[in-house]
């Protein structure tokens, strides 16, 4: 029993680590999509953030500098997205696809120029990464039966970006539901004409939404390469941006629900890797590769209205013509 609890805790611990970049991207997606801009480019922003963070951390030896530059790079990608689909009213999906492909190419091209390692960045020394933060009292609480393990494994011992992502969720919810900016943001995604006639710039609002998304994706990218991993590997975002987008939809464009969806998708992946090669009673060996498709299958089922009804922002995908 104790072993089972321990295993479960390890799985929850892995869940949180897997979900962190998803949560950052999902919050980014909520900002963009709530303002009426489809954001397929979460993936590309995450990838460019990951690359720049690892490259800068490798060159300067500072994880924080890496994080800062990752944010800048990711915001730059957001600005391209905005330039194409806000300023020039281009197709938002096409722009997103372009950014994802650009990111996938640029990261490798620049990576090879800088490091000549086939697109990877050198492995970072420990001091150039975000290290796990030990919380106070871990050792004293160890004596307490279950609580001690929970405290040590689940709550303490993550790096600062994991805690930051847990902050990002209430912050996103607060901004979207409790501030004037958030009210306008939601309005611009539903009825941009109304916002415009109130004398508020639709363009500037949407740009700001995309830039906030850029910041969040940049942090998520830095997490991948400088906190969770120790270097950048080509295409290391590996579809996480798309899973985050799925989580946004699954969470019905609401921060808390999207957060839970990220945790669920993270848990599925964590459980899958634990179940690799395990024979379960009745089912037999778990086809883990198929389990990895579950987030996508669930999202499709949800979108098709088999699990609840999604209600996307009304003006999503439409460029605003004054």
């Amino acid at each position: 029993m104790a072993d089972f609890i321990y295993q479960l805790l390890l799985t929850f611990d892995a869940t949180l680590r897997i979900a962190t970049p998803l949560i950052f991207c999902a919050m980014a997606g909520i900002f963009a999509e709530r303002s009426g801009v489809i954001d397929i480019s979460l993936e590309g922003k995450l990838l460019s953030g990951a690359f720049v963070a690892a490259a800068v951390a490798a060159l300067t030896g500072s994880a924080w500098l890496g994080l800062g530059c990752a944010i800048l790079a990711s915001v730059a990608m957001s600005l391209i997205h905005g330039f194409a689909c806000i300023t020039h009213k281009g197709n938002q999906v096409i722009s997103g696809v372009a950014i994802n492909i650009l990111a996938s190419g640029l990261t490798v091209v620049i990576g090879i120029t800088l490091f000549r390692r086939g697109g990877q960045t050198p492995t970072l020394p420990r001091e150039a990464r975000f290290k796990p933060v030990e919380w106070v009292g871990v050792d004293t609480l160890d004596a307490v039966p279950i609580l001690g393990v929970i405290y040590r494994q689940l709550i303490s011992g993550h790096n600062v970006l994991v805690y930051l992502t847990l902050l990002a969720v209430p912050l996103t919810a607060f901004i979207i539901y409790r501030t004037r900016f958030g009210l306008r943001l939601r309005a611009v995604g539903e009825v941009p004409e109304a916002v415009d006639s109130a004398g508020v710039s639709v363009t500037w609002l949407r740009y700001r939404a995309l830039m906030i998304g850029g910041v969040l994706c940049g942090i998520g990218g830095a997490y991948l390469s400088v906190a969770q991993g120790g270097n950048f590997v080509r295409d290391m975002s590996a579809g996480k941006g798309y899973i985050a987008l799925a989580a946004v939809i699954f969470g019905n464009w609401k921060p808390l629900a999207a957060f839970l969806a990220c945790l669920m998708f993270g848990f599925l992946e964590a459980a899958t890797s634990r179940l690799q090669g395990v024979d379960l009673p009745l089912i037999g060996e778990v086809p883990t590769q198929l389990m990895l498709a579950l987030p996508y299958v669930l999202t499709v089922l949800l979108l098709a209205g088999f699990i609840g009804r999604p209600s996307p922002p009304a003006a999503i995908g439409q460029p605003y013509h004054k």
Partner: peptide, 20 residues
């Protein structure tokens, strides 16, 4: 990988920015 870059740029310019 340069080709990926060109591909991305082409999608950007002849797709999203088609009418710039």
């Amino acid at each position: 990988e340069m080709v990926l870059l060109i591909q991305g740029m082409i999608i950007l310019f002849s797709g999203a920015l088609a009418y710039m």
